[in-house]
């Protein structure tokens, strides 16, 4: 613990004071650096948009999903399927409750289709139409502002 300078009893009071001051200065600066650096890093806005931090997430424009079409988009950490039917826009979790495959839109039959085992879901309610899924797709809230589609992640 005791270092070379401390073991020296013959130092004058002046240099002792200077040493103490230098040590205290080092201590203060290094501690402040350790504390301030992460805080500054934290304050710098991250590259990804704050929209990803929950709440309303912009998933595209109405032009991306014309009537009779559907699209899988990422919302936060979960894939979500947006479908545009005669009943308007609907959003559902895109994870099939059967084995966790990601569902797709089947334009031929106008249903949400799980490609793995042919599970079919109602595009307006998310309910199972046929196939092995034990339950329907949970609905997500979707809103349109101007021509932008937002999903309210839950």
């Amino acid at each position: 613990m005791s270092q070379q300078p401390t073991a020296d009893p013959g130092t004058s009071g002046f240099s002792r004071r200077r040493l103490l001051a230098a040590l205290a200065g080092f201590s203060i600066i290094s501690t402040l650096t350790m504390i301030v650096a992460p805080i500054l890093g934290f304050l710098i806005p991250p590259k990804t948009s704050g929209a990803a931090a929950g709440g309303k997430v912009l998933v595209g424009t109405v032009a991306d999903i014309p009537p009779g079409q559907g699209k899988v988009v990422p919302v936060g950490s979960s894939p979500t399927i947006i479908v545009n039917t005669d009943q308007g826009l609907n959003a559902f979790s895109a994870i099939c409750p059967h084995l966790g495959c990601i569902v797709t839109w089947d334009p031929g039959s106008n249903v949400i289709l799980c490609p793995c085992h042919d599970g079919r879901f109602n595009p307006t309610t998310g309910a199972v139409l046929s196939g092995p899924p034990p339950s329907g797709l949970p609905a997500e809230e979707v809103t349109v502002e101007d021509d932008q589609i937002f999903v309210v992640s839950s």
Partner: peptide, 14 residues
């Protein structure tokens, strides 16, 4: 932090 502790200890003894 450990260096800091040593430094403060030195200051304290001094």
């Amino acid at each position: 932090i450990l260096i800091n502790v040593v430094v403060l200890y030195v200051i304290m003894r001094r």
